[in-house]
Design a protein around this nucleic acid. Structure first.
Lengths: 209, 209
DNA sequence: GGAATACTGTTGCAAATACAACAAATATGG
DNA sequence: CCATATTTGTTGTATTTGCAACAGTATTCC
């Protein structure tokens, strides 16, 4: 139970705080939907596992809006304000989720937890990270062509992985989803980029030129 | 000096806190670039005015990545981790910006400001809002066709403005930028949507069917 | 009030992309 | 280890979109 939300807080204190914040831990199997809109105040932190925020539109098209990894935060408070029924949060791996009441965090803790502010600071960091990830995706999606999308995404990876040789951290099928283009069109563009020497590639391993 | 960051804090205390947090206020004229990457710890809050985060790529294409309004937060901490040189934060109206040191906020204030936690909570809210705005934009940009992008955007507006009759809060030229498509192509699609009865429209006023 | 500037609106055409359908390679699960 | 599902890779064609160029209409600024 030492997720990123409780970094720097000892286990004994974490126990106390969980009671104080009216927290609860839930487990969900792969493929299950996490109920995430039960209350406006409820905030979820993905302590373990992986999940995807999925939009299903009228014609049955499935779009992955967001990919949640360990430490990610979600909840009504962080929901894009669109029609409820189309958005679901699906586990792609067994997940452990910690739910806490946002108002309990925001308001001054009456029992004056020593570590209240540490927790708020951690939460601030988690949400800031989320904002950064979203900004990065907007930066990718704002490109007009598939090639430009790929280049921006590869450059982001380059910074994170520290070198011209990068490994795409998901299947190419998922990558096409992430950058919101047709998979076959993306494959064709990757081929073009290889042909004109912009990149070298073997499966998910890519070297930028 | 009562921006959204200091909501619920009286002016006298705000004065004290500004000193405590080593804060400074700056003004920038329309068209000027706000220096926003000076230090990793520096956080800016747009107290008044409007600014845009602009990306200039190698071929000189100009893309608006983000539109900052009153209360928006920015800074190195919230920057998508890509090449520095291409991103600039341009004022589109005269701006007032409050800079504070993030570490001063995150760390326990030694002088024990009474309102420290109120400020952290406000900051949490501002960043959460930013995350929501970014999520909404991802939701729009993740659509494959211009028509789908417009429909999702209009639905968002419908929720916010509360009715089938909506008014686009920016010029159509800017809207095309926001959804990252060619303006003329967007105009053509709007015409098609009118023709098959999906919407009625007069300039920026739209009625959804 | 008039000139300059931005915004709205339109069209033909070229280019990029989605769609569909398939084959081969690789992982996965019993 | 075998069958099955998933991922990777390819190609032809129809559709969508971007680009360029233009005209008319509001808005801004002096």
């Amino acid at each position: 139970m030492t997720g990123p939300l409780f970094a720097g807080i000892c286990d004994a204190d974490v126990e106390k705080m969980l009671r104080c914040f009216n927290a609860s831990t839930r487990h969900y199997g792969a493929g299950v939907d996490i109920p995430w809109l039960e209350s406006r105040r409820r905030i979820g932190v993905l302590q373990m596992g992986r999940a995807e925020l999925i939009r299903l539109d009228g014609e049955g098209n499935r779009t992955m809006l967001e990919r949640l990894e360990q430490g990610d935060v979600f909840g009504e408070m962080l929901r894009p304000s669109v029609a409820l029924e189309s958005l679901s949060l699906q586990c792609t791996a067994p997940c452990e989720v910690l739910f806490i009441d946002g108002t309990d965090i925001i308001k001054r803790c009456e029992r004056a937890c020593v570590h209240h502010s540490a927790l708020v600071d951690n939460l601030l960091g988690l949400i800031a990270d989320k904002a950064v990830r979203l900004s990065e995706r907007v930066e990718v999606l704002s490109c007009r062509s598939i090639r430009a999308k790929l280049m921006v995404y590869f450059q982001l990876l380059q910074v994170k992985q520290g070198g011209a040789r990068i490994v795409v951290p998901m299947s190419l099928t998922e990558l096409a989803d992430y950058i919101c283009v047709e998979r076959s069109a993306m494959m064709r563009e990757l081929k073009h980029m290889e042909q004109d020497g912009s990149i070298e590639r073997a499966r998910r391993e890519i070297v930028l030129k």
